[in-house]
Design a protein around this nucleic acid. Sequence first.
RNA 1: GGGCGGUUAGCUCAGCUGGUUAGAGCGCCUGCCUUACAAGCAGGAGGUCGCAGGUUCGAGUCCUGCACUGCCCACCA
Length: 930
Amino acid sequence: MPTDNMPHELPKAYEPGAIESRWAEYWKHEKLFHASTPPDGHARNMFSLLLPPPNVTGRLHMGHMLNQTEMDIIVRWHRMRGDLTLWLPGTDHAGIATQMMVERQLRTEGKSRRDLGREAFIERVWCWRKQYGGAILDQMKRLGASVDWEREYFTMDENLSRAVREVFVRLHEQGLIYRGKYIVNWCPDCGTAISDLEVKHEEVAGKLYEIRYPVVGSKEFITVVTTRPETMLGDTAIAVNAKDERYTHLHGKMVMLPLMNREIPIILDELANPEFGTGAVKVTPAHDPNDFQAGLRHNLPQIDVMDERAQMNQNAGPYAGLDRFDARKRVLADLEAQGFLVAIKDYTISLGKCDRSGTVVEPRLSEQWFVKIEPLAKRAIEVVEKGYIRFTPENYKTIYLNWMYNIHDWCISRQLWWGHRIPAWRCGDCGEVMVARATPTKCTKCGGAKLEQDTDVLDTWFSSALLPFTTLGWPEATRDLDVFYPTSLLITGFDILFFWVARMIMMGCWFMMPPEKPKSPGEKTASHEEALRNSVPFREVYIHALVRDAERQKMSKTKGNVLDPIEVIEQYGTDATRFTLAAMAAPGTDIAFNPSRTEGYRNFANKIWNAARFMFMNVDRIGEVVARASSPAEAGSQGVAGFKAETLEDRWILSRFNGVAAYVNEALEEFRFHEAANRIYDFFWGEFCDWYIELIKPRLMFEEGADTGAAQVACGNLVALFEASLRLLHPVMPFITEEIWHAIYDGKPPLKSIALAAFPESNPKQIDLQSETQMAVLQDLIVSVRNLRAEMKVEPKVKAPIQIYALEPEIRSLIEQNRGAILSDRQANVESITFVEASLAKLAGARHTARFDVHLMYEQKIDVAAECVRLKKDLEKLERDVANAERQLGNQSFLAKAPASVVEGLRRQKRENQGLIEKTKSKMRELGCN
RNA sequence: GGGCGGUUAGCUCAGCUGGUUAGAGCGCCUGCCUUACAAGCAGGAGGUCGCAGGUUCGAGUCCUGCACUGCCCACCA
């Protein structure tokens, strides 16, 4: 590999691919992120968090990448700050998703899961998992996620499964799990019940059908309205409102159900709203949740007319065997033919679809297991209301609470094969249902031995809800649980706020809350609060938004706008992709992911790379002794160690670095990733590279006759500052920082990884505001001259003298002391500097600022017209500003109420602007502007 | 029907607790192959902060209304 005489083997161009895979492998192989539990008391601060387990079937998408980037930044930051840090990874067995995936595979072989049978099918799923289940974690590795791979889990692991059974049994013992026949959301495609949350409602244009039912023993009809005429085959009543006078005369009558020729009663029920439709409604207890409740109130029979595939069954008489949608057409045609269909109107209906399959969900009467949620919710509300769990952004607290206040019982049984099987057994002799931790051998009631386990499995989210404690060893009282629970933080997307976050809170606060010991009342309260506070699954939740495409569209396969993070990574590198996400991750706002942005951050990485090459070039030339003189990583985290601030730019950059470190720490504290990332970017590129490196070049013996000692100091400073900057950057860009950091130590670093070095904290002693002010003046001067050169079209190679007028002696001496830098062709590129005693502001080719006037002495006819336009624009703005300032300063209450610094600042600014106005005017006169 | 957001430069977005001249990236214009980097350097153009009121000495920032727009929740046939 041509190294171009470059030391430390850094190739000329930044190539992320090679370095990233190497370090990802190294980190995992060296087990750098393994958090071993300390044997006794917590000597260090602890920081723990759980990776939201991706589905084993999953492929990494931008949402994952955002989530993991944010977690990794926080985790690396904590680890570098010396916390005992645990980031726990794992995958979720994802019941329906995985089962569907394997069934699809079977279908290609012309088989169904029923052909295999339950046991063989499950065996097959395990095979599938073994073969493909690691893909998503492999992808995670490429992101650089600093998880504890030694603790990786799978939700179907034996220990986790045992914990799930334990929870189920305990809840059942506590009367919080019950079984019963209710209307549930049924997906005919998946063949299972699903929870309310798994139903997505969609507004669609539908129809409202008016159907008349003949009243028995009269010539009258009663007309009902429905959106689902096919369910009338299961009608068992018609309801009217008792207060609805239109129907008073029909109270107690029967109607004949058309098509089925069955007599059903007219009942009085609140279900019927006199305001809606005809005020009369058909009641189908087996196919509608409201009708189901009404049916219970009136003791109505429940006639289920569909099977589990949503095809009409024998109860549907002549319609048996038809699909529900075909049945609708047939029913309508028949009603029409027989004169029962009164009208069809357009109507917008909210159609529930299965989240997973997209099939229209059927409300179906079936026997299911439920969690009685209210007691759990009560506690989950309490801990959030009391602030024991903090939400960021805060508005999610409201959203969470609103949901929790209106929560319904949770249907947890699924008619699937893949998942945690419900630990309930039914006695074949007496029908008794037993819930037990271990397979019972005989019936607890009749002693019979013909026991069959419930065929259902649990909702995947049931086991996920337990992860914060089960992954730490619960129900055993483990050391891990003691140390790492409650976890410190959860970072996740709002899409699983209810599915997962809310349920973890409910389960955590329920199972990690020790039983109350009866004690004296006062003591009890205090310890109760303490226990409650420590029962939460996490102390903080950070909710991030959605990653959209560059046009703000939701990424979806059908739209074809899905950005594959791996592709972006391959193009620009992981570091640049991470940086993009971090820089755009303002709390509470969606991220419009634009790869052009990533290209920009790849360029930033390249900038870092080349700055490193520059540094090494000097280290090798000036002597490695200097570079190694201090061992910054060992010197602690306060400021920059081993830095000798001798010049203005030294004092300035040191001060800026410490300011940035303070800012970054504060920003990360509040999950303001974008502020942290942008601040580092601006510092490294805009200050460190653009100004500092350029300013020290003369000292680094670039110039003839430079002083060797000064060069060594400058080089040492460069290394020290660079090393500290790498640590600051590392949480966001782990790979490139690791690469350069090792190169700094020539492959023999004091620690195995920069990830184990200290994160920079601000050192107040290294903050030097005076140098920052001085540097600002110097920069202002240099930029002014560059400005003038551009305006006057001075040839790049031509130098001209400048005159400077400055009243304040300290400004003059500042300029005097930095004369060399100003003269340099890297900076102002001027021939000479002369101080004059009179204002220069009104001269053409001059600039006036608060601290100085500068005049570029260059004879070139300037573009008068263009200059006039520019001056006029300046003038207008100045006059506006002065007018504003005058208005404010004339205002007594402003003078009385505004802080003195604001008033003083405004006065000064006004004075300066007035001066400028005069000068601008005279300049305009001089040029002959009108 | 409830609830939560968004509207700032041509595009995509920042702007924390109200304070002196509203920022960035990309794009655009001008000039530079200056030996770390053309994935770069220097300079520049571009904004009545959705509209209308209000609070305040002072509003992009707080309040009210409106318009447009997105999302979540909800068993109204």
